[in-house]
Amino acid sequence: MTTLLVFGIIGILLIFFSLVTVQQGNIAVISMFGKYQRILHPGLNFKIPLIESVFKVISIQNRSIELEFQAITIDQANVYFKSMLLYSVINQEEETIKNVAYKFIDAQSLMQTLVRTVEGSIRSFVATKRQSEILSLRKEIVSYVKDQIDQVMEEWGYHLQDLQLNDITFDEVILKSMSQVVASNNLKAAAENEGQALLITKTKAAEAEGNAIKISANAEREAAQLRGQGVALFRQEVAKGMSDAAREMQQANLDTSVILFSMWTEAIKQFGEQSNGNVIFLDGSADNMQRTMQQMMSVNQLQTIKQNKKKES
Protein backbone atom coordinates (compact mmCIF):
# COMPACT_ATOMS: atom_id res chain seq x y z
CA MET A 1 0.00 0.00 0.00
CA THR A 2 2.80 2.31 0.90
CA THR A 3 4.60 1.49 -2.33
CA LEU A 4 1.52 2.39 -4.38
CA LEU A 5 1.22 5.65 -2.51
CA VAL A 6 4.85 6.47 -3.22
CA PHE A 7 4.49 5.67 -6.90
CA GLY A 8 1.31 7.74 -7.00
CA ILE A 9 3.04 10.73 -5.52
CA ILE A 10 5.96 10.33 -7.90
CA GLY A 11 3.54 10.12 -10.84
CA ILE A 12 1.76 13.27 -9.76
CA LEU A 13 5.07 15.08 -9.40
CA LEU A 14 6.20 13.90 -12.83
CA ILE A 15 2.96 15.13 -14.39
CA PHE A 16 3.28 18.42 -12.54
CA PHE A 17 6.86 18.96 -13.69
CA SER A 18 5.99 17.99 -17.25
CA LEU A 19 3.45 20.80 -17.62
CA VAL A 20 4.72 24.14 -18.91
CA THR A 21 2.55 27.25 -19.26
CA VAL A 22 3.78 29.91 -21.70
CA GLN A 23 2.21 33.36 -21.40
CA GLN A 24 0.76 35.17 -24.41
CA GLY A 25 3.43 37.25 -26.21
CA ASN A 26 6.24 34.86 -25.19
CA ILE A 27 7.92 31.76 -26.57
CA ALA A 28 9.81 29.28 -24.40
CA VAL A 29 13.06 27.66 -25.53
CA ILE A 30 13.46 24.03 -24.37
CA SER A 31 16.90 22.41 -23.98
CA MET A 32 17.90 18.84 -23.19
CA PHE A 33 21.11 18.32 -21.24
CA GLY A 34 22.15 21.90 -22.20
CA LYS A 35 21.45 21.48 -25.91
CA TYR A 36 18.67 23.22 -27.81
CA GLN A 37 15.69 20.92 -28.28
CA ARG A 38 12.59 22.82 -29.36
CA ILE A 39 10.32 25.82 -28.70
CA LEU A 40 6.99 26.09 -26.92
CA HIS A 41 4.26 28.48 -28.01
CA PRO A 42 1.81 30.33 -25.71
CA GLY A 43 -0.56 28.09 -23.78
CA LEU A 44 -0.22 24.78 -21.91
CA ASN A 45 2.67 22.63 -23.14
CA PHE A 46 4.40 19.41 -22.07
CA LYS A 47 8.07 18.58 -21.59
CA ILE A 48 9.95 15.54 -20.44
CA PRO A 49 10.43 16.00 -16.71
CA LEU A 50 13.96 15.93 -15.34
CA ILE A 51 15.37 15.68 -18.87
CA GLU A 52 14.03 18.75 -20.68
CA SER A 53 14.18 22.20 -19.11
CA VAL A 54 13.12 25.74 -20.04
CA PHE A 55 16.32 27.47 -21.09
CA LYS A 56 14.87 30.92 -21.75
CA VAL A 57 11.53 32.66 -22.30
CA ILE A 58 11.66 35.03 -25.29
CA SER A 59 9.29 38.01 -25.47
CA ILE A 60 8.00 38.67 -28.99
CA GLN A 61 6.38 41.96 -28.00
CA ASN A 62 7.68 45.38 -29.07
CA ARG A 63 10.42 46.88 -26.93
CA SER A 64 11.69 50.44 -26.69
CA ILE A 65 14.87 52.12 -25.51
CA GLU A 66 15.51 55.82 -24.88
CA LEU A 67 18.92 57.04 -26.02
CA GLU A 68 20.87 60.21 -25.19
CA PHE A 69 24.24 60.74 -26.82
CA GLN A 70 26.48 63.30 -28.51
CA ALA A 71 27.88 63.53 -32.05
CA ILE A 72 30.28 65.93 -33.80
CA THR A 73 29.71 67.41 -37.25
CA ILE A 74 32.33 67.89 -39.95
CA ASP A 75 32.70 71.55 -38.90
CA GLN A 76 33.37 70.50 -35.28
CA ALA A 77 29.98 71.40 -33.81
CA ASN A 78 28.58 69.34 -30.94
CA VAL A 79 25.13 67.85 -31.58
CA TYR A 80 23.08 66.34 -28.75
CA PHE A 81 20.48 63.69 -29.56
CA LYS A 82 17.54 62.37 -27.57
CA SER A 83 15.94 59.47 -29.39
CA MET A 84 13.66 56.50 -28.90
CA LEU A 85 14.42 53.10 -30.44
CA LEU A 86 11.58 50.64 -31.12
CA TYR A 87 12.44 47.04 -32.00
CA SER A 88 11.03 43.53 -31.79
CA VAL A 89 11.70 39.89 -32.68
CA ILE A 90 11.39 39.44 -36.45
CA ASN A 91 8.93 36.53 -36.31
CA GLN A 92 8.05 33.38 -34.35
CA GLU A 93 9.91 30.95 -36.55
CA GLU A 94 12.15 28.42 -34.82
CA GLU A 95 15.41 29.61 -36.38
CA THR A 96 14.67 33.22 -35.40
CA ILE A 97 13.90 32.23 -31.81
CA LYS A 98 17.16 30.23 -31.63
CA ASN A 99 19.15 33.30 -32.72
CA VAL A 100 17.44 35.47 -30.12
CA ALA A 101 18.03 32.91 -27.38
CA TYR A 102 21.69 32.10 -28.05
CA LYS A 103 23.33 35.17 -29.70
CA PHE A 104 23.73 37.09 -26.42
CA ILE A 105 24.42 35.84 -22.94
CA ASP A 106 21.71 38.02 -21.46
CA ALA A 107 19.33 40.90 -22.24
CA GLN A 108 21.75 43.49 -20.83
CA SER A 109 24.42 42.52 -23.37
CA LEU A 110 21.87 42.83 -26.18
CA MET A 111 20.80 46.30 -25.01
CA GLN A 112 24.37 47.53 -24.71
CA THR A 113 25.32 46.27 -28.17
CA LEU A 114 22.15 47.64 -29.78
CA VAL A 115 22.58 51.08 -28.22
CA ARG A 116 26.24 51.34 -29.20
CA THR A 117 25.45 50.23 -32.76
CA VAL A 118 22.73 52.85 -33.22
CA GLU A 119 24.86 55.60 -31.69
CA GLY A 120 27.81 54.66 -33.89
CA SER A 121 25.68 54.77 -37.04
CA ILE A 122 24.30 58.21 -36.21
CA ARG A 123 27.73 59.55 -35.30
CA SER A 124 29.22 58.33 -38.57
CA PHE A 125 26.43 60.03 -40.52
CA VAL A 126 26.66 63.32 -38.59
CA ALA A 127 30.44 63.40 -39.03
CA THR A 128 29.92 63.92 -42.80
CA LYS A 129 27.45 66.81 -42.44
CA ARG A 130 27.64 70.44 -41.40
CA GLN A 131 25.93 71.82 -38.34
CA SER A 132 23.53 73.91 -40.42
CA GLU A 133 22.28 70.79 -42.24
CA ILE A 134 21.50 68.52 -39.30
CA LEU A 135 18.06 69.83 -38.34
CA SER A 136 16.73 69.29 -41.84
CA LEU A 137 18.08 65.72 -42.10
CA ARG A 138 15.99 63.84 -39.55
CA LYS A 139 14.49 61.48 -42.11
CA GLU A 140 17.84 60.93 -43.79
CA ILE A 141 19.45 60.04 -40.44
CA VAL A 142 16.73 57.51 -39.65
CA SER A 143 16.98 55.94 -43.12
CA TYR A 144 20.77 55.75 -42.86
CA VAL A 145 20.64 54.04 -39.44
CA LYS A 146 18.04 51.52 -40.59
CA ASP A 147 20.11 50.64 -43.64
CA GLN A 148 23.21 50.22 -41.50
CA ILE A 149 21.88 48.05 -38.67
CA ASP A 150 18.86 46.22 -40.15
CA GLN A 151 21.03 43.40 -41.52
CA VAL A 152 22.99 43.10 -38.27
CA MET A 153 19.83 42.99 -36.17
CA GLU A 154 18.32 40.35 -38.44
CA GLU A 155 21.30 38.12 -37.65
CA TRP A 156 20.42 38.56 -34.00
CA GLY A 157 16.78 37.74 -34.72
CA TYR A 158 15.51 41.30 -34.24
CA HIS A 159 14.03 43.99 -36.46
CA LEU A 160 14.34 47.77 -36.02
CA GLN A 161 10.80 49.06 -36.36
CA ASP A 162 11.33 52.74 -35.73
CA LEU A 163 13.90 55.30 -34.67
CA GLN A 164 12.53 58.65 -33.50
CA LEU A 165 14.85 61.61 -33.06
CA ASN A 166 12.79 63.45 -30.48
CA ASP A 167 15.25 66.25 -29.78
CA ILE A 168 18.32 67.63 -31.55
CA THR A 169 20.17 70.44 -29.80
CA PHE A 170 23.49 72.27 -30.06
CA ASP A 171 25.77 74.22 -27.76
CA GLU A 172 24.35 77.51 -26.48
CA VAL A 173 26.74 79.57 -28.63
CA ILE A 174 25.62 77.76 -31.77
CA LEU A 175 21.94 78.09 -30.83
CA LYS A 176 22.40 81.83 -30.36
CA SER A 177 24.15 82.21 -33.72
CA MET A 178 21.41 80.15 -35.40
CA SER A 179 18.79 82.44 -33.87
CA GLN A 180 20.63 85.47 -35.19
CA VAL A 181 20.80 83.94 -38.66
CA VAL A 182 17.06 83.20 -38.62
CA ALA A 183 16.30 86.72 -37.37
CA SER A 184 18.45 88.33 -40.07
CA ASN A 185 16.84 86.16 -42.75
CA ASN A 186 13.41 87.17 -41.49
CA LEU A 187 14.39 90.84 -41.60
CA LYS A 188 15.75 90.37 -45.11
CA ALA A 189 12.54 88.68 -46.24
CA ALA A 190 10.46 91.42 -44.62
CA ALA A 191 12.52 94.11 -46.37
CA GLU A 192 12.16 92.33 -49.70
CA ASN A 193 8.41 92.00 -49.22
CA GLU A 194 8.14 95.67 -48.23
CA GLY A 195 10.18 96.68 -51.28
CA GLN A 196 8.00 94.59 -53.57
CA ALA A 197 4.85 96.06 -52.02
CA LEU A 198 6.20 99.60 -52.46
CA LEU A 199 7.16 98.81 -56.06
CA ILE A 200 3.68 97.48 -56.77
CA THR A 201 2.11 100.56 -55.16
CA LYS A 202 4.29 102.94 -57.16
CA THR A 203 3.66 101.00 -60.36
CA LYS A 204 -0.10 101.03 -59.85
CA ALA A 205 -0.02 104.75 -59.03
CA ALA A 206 2.02 105.46 -62.16
CA GLU A 207 -0.36 103.37 -64.26
CA ALA A 208 -3.35 105.20 -62.78
CA GLU A 209 -1.71 108.58 -63.42
CA GLY A 210 -0.84 107.55 -66.97
CA ASN A 211 -4.40 106.41 -67.60
CA ALA A 212 -5.73 109.69 -66.16
CA ILE A 213 -3.42 111.67 -68.45
CA LYS A 214 -4.57 109.61 -71.44
CA ILE A 215 -8.23 110.14 -70.54
CA SER A 216 -7.66 113.86 -69.99
CA ALA A 217 -5.78 114.17 -73.29
CA ASN A 218 -8.49 112.31 -75.17
CA ALA A 219 -11.16 114.46 -73.57
CA GLU A 220 -9.22 117.64 -74.37
CA ARG A 221 -8.72 116.51 -77.96
CA GLU A 222 -12.41 115.75 -78.36
CA ALA A 223 -13.34 119.06 -76.71
CA ALA A 224 -10.96 120.98 -79.02
CA GLN A 225 -12.41 119.15 -82.00
CA LEU A 226 -15.93 120.04 -80.90
CA ARG A 227 -14.91 123.64 -80.27
CA GLY A 228 -13.39 123.83 -83.72
CA GLN A 229 -16.50 122.36 -85.24
CA GLY A 230 -18.61 124.85 -83.29
CA VAL A 231 -16.48 127.79 -84.44
CA ALA A 232 -16.65 126.56 -88.02
CA LEU A 233 -20.43 126.23 -87.86
CA PHE A 234 -20.68 129.66 -86.27
CA ARG A 235 -18.59 131.17 -89.04
CA GLN A 236 -20.67 129.42 -91.66
CA GLU A 237 -23.86 130.75 -90.13
CA VAL A 238 -22.39 134.25 -89.85
CA ALA A 239 -21.24 134.14 -93.43
CA LYS A 240 -24.63 132.85 -94.56
CA GLY A 241 -26.43 135.59 -92.62
CA MET A 242 -24.15 138.28 -94.02
CA SER A 243 -24.60 136.95 -97.54
CA ASP A 244 -28.38 136.96 -97.21
CA ALA A 245 -28.36 140.46 -95.73
CA ALA A 246 -26.02 141.74 -98.46
CA ARG A 247 -28.20 140.18 -101.16
CA GLU A 248 -31.34 141.83 -99.78
CA MET A 249 -29.59 145.21 -99.52
CA GLN A 250 -28.33 144.95 -103.11
CA GLN A 251 -31.84 144.22 -104.25
CA ALA A 252 -33.03 147.32 -102.34
CA ASN A 253 -30.18 149.41 -103.92
CA LEU A 254 -28.56 149.99 -100.50
CA ASP A 255 -24.85 150.15 -99.67
CA THR A 256 -23.72 146.86 -98.15
CA SER A 257 -21.07 148.60 -96.08
CA VAL A 258 -23.83 149.45 -93.66
CA ILE A 259 -23.77 145.79 -92.61
CA LEU A 260 -20.10 146.04 -91.70
CA PHE A 261 -20.72 149.23 -89.74
CA SER A 262 -23.56 147.56 -87.91
CA MET A 263 -21.33 144.56 -87.03
CA TRP A 264 -18.63 146.91 -85.79
CA THR A 265 -20.99 148.79 -83.51
CA GLU A 266 -22.51 145.51 -82.31
CA ALA A 267 -19.04 144.23 -81.44
CA ILE A 268 -18.34 147.38 -79.42
CA LYS A 269 -21.63 146.83 -77.63
CA GLN A 270 -20.66 143.27 -76.75
CA PHE A 271 -17.27 144.45 -75.49
CA GLY A 272 -18.99 146.84 -73.15
CA GLU A 273 -21.52 144.34 -71.84
CA GLN A 274 -19.30 141.26 -71.52
CA SER A 275 -15.92 142.75 -70.59
CA ASN A 276 -14.78 142.87 -66.95
CA GLY A 277 -13.07 146.22 -67.50
CA ASN A 278 -14.56 149.68 -67.02
CA VAL A 279 -13.02 151.57 -69.96
CA ILE A 280 -12.82 150.84 -73.73
CA PHE A 281 -10.33 152.94 -75.69
CA LEU A 282 -11.44 153.64 -79.31
CA ASP A 283 -9.96 155.93 -81.91
CA GLY A 284 -13.02 157.93 -82.96
CA SER A 285 -11.25 160.20 -85.47
CA ALA A 286 -12.60 160.53 -89.02
CA ASP A 287 -9.44 159.02 -90.52
CA ASN A 288 -9.62 155.99 -88.27
CA MET A 289 -13.31 155.49 -88.97
CA GLN A 290 -12.65 155.68 -92.69
CA ARG A 291 -9.71 153.23 -92.41
CA THR A 292 -11.79 150.80 -90.38
CA MET A 293 -14.62 150.95 -92.89
CA GLN A 294 -12.22 150.29 -95.76
CA GLN A 295 -10.78 147.26 -93.98
CA MET A 296 -14.21 145.87 -93.27
CA MET A 297 -15.31 146.44 -96.88
CA SER A 298 -12.18 144.63 -98.06
CA VAL A 299 -13.04 141.68 -95.85
CA ASN A 300 -16.56 141.70 -97.21
CA GLN A 301 -15.29 141.75 -100.80
CA LEU A 302 -12.98 138.78 -100.10
CA GLN A 303 -15.85 136.89 -98.57
CA THR A 304 -18.02 137.63 -101.60
CA ILE A 305 -15.29 136.44 -104.00
CA LYS A 306 -14.91 133.14 -102.05
CA GLN A 307 -18.65 132.55 -102.14
CA ASN A 308 -18.79 133.19 -105.91
CA LYS A 309 -15.92 130.73 -106.50
CA LYS A 310 -17.73 128.10 -104.47
CA LYS A 311 -20.87 128.60 -106.53
CA GLU A 312 -18.94 128.35 -109.82
CA SER A 313 -17.19 125.13 -108.71
Rank of each mutant, 00 (worst) to 15 (best):
V54L: 05
L199S: 06
I168F: 00
E66D: 12
P49S: 10
N26W: 10
L137R: 07
K129M: 03
V145H: 01
D75T: 01
I174F: 05
E273V: 14
A246Q: 02
M296A: 14
T73P: 00
L163V: 03
I97H: 05
S313P: 06
Q303W: 10
Y87W: 02
A190Y: 02
G43H: 04
F7Y: 13
K202E: 15
A219E: 14
M84K: 08
L50P: 04
S177M: 14
Q250S: 06
I213C: 04
T113K: 09
M32E: 14
G272F: 15
Q180L: 13
R221G: 06
Y87L: 00
R138D: 04
T96I: 03
G210Y: 13
I65D: 02
L4G: 13
I72L: 06
N300H: 13
I134T: 04
V279T: 10
A190C: 02
I200S: 10
A219I: 06
S298N: 13
I215M: 14
L187K: 11
E222G: 11
A206N: 12
D255V: 00
G34A: 10
F271M: 09
S143E: 09
D162C: 00
M249Q: 01
G284T: 08
Q294W: 13
A208S: 14
G272N: 15
Q70V: 05
V89H: 01
K139G: 04
G284I: 10
T96L: 08
P42W: 01
I105L: 11
K56L: 15
F104Y: 01
I200T: 14
V115S: 01
E222H: 12
T21K: 14
A232C: 00
L137F: 01
I10Q: 00
L160P: 05
S184N: 15
I168Y: 02
A219M: 09
G228M: 06
I105C: 05
K82R: 08
I90Y: 11
S53N: 15
E266D: 14
V279R: 10
I122P: 00
I12K: 13
Q251A: 08
K82D: 08
E209R: 13
I12Y: 14
S216V: 03
E222Q: 06
Q180P: 12
R130F: 00
E52A: 03
L199D: 08
K56S: 04
S177T: 11
Q251H: 03
K188A: 12
T117I: 01
G25S: 10
L40G: 11
S143K: 09
S143V: 10
I200G: 09
K35N: 09
N308L: 11
K269S: 14
G277F: 05
Q131D: 12
I149W: 01
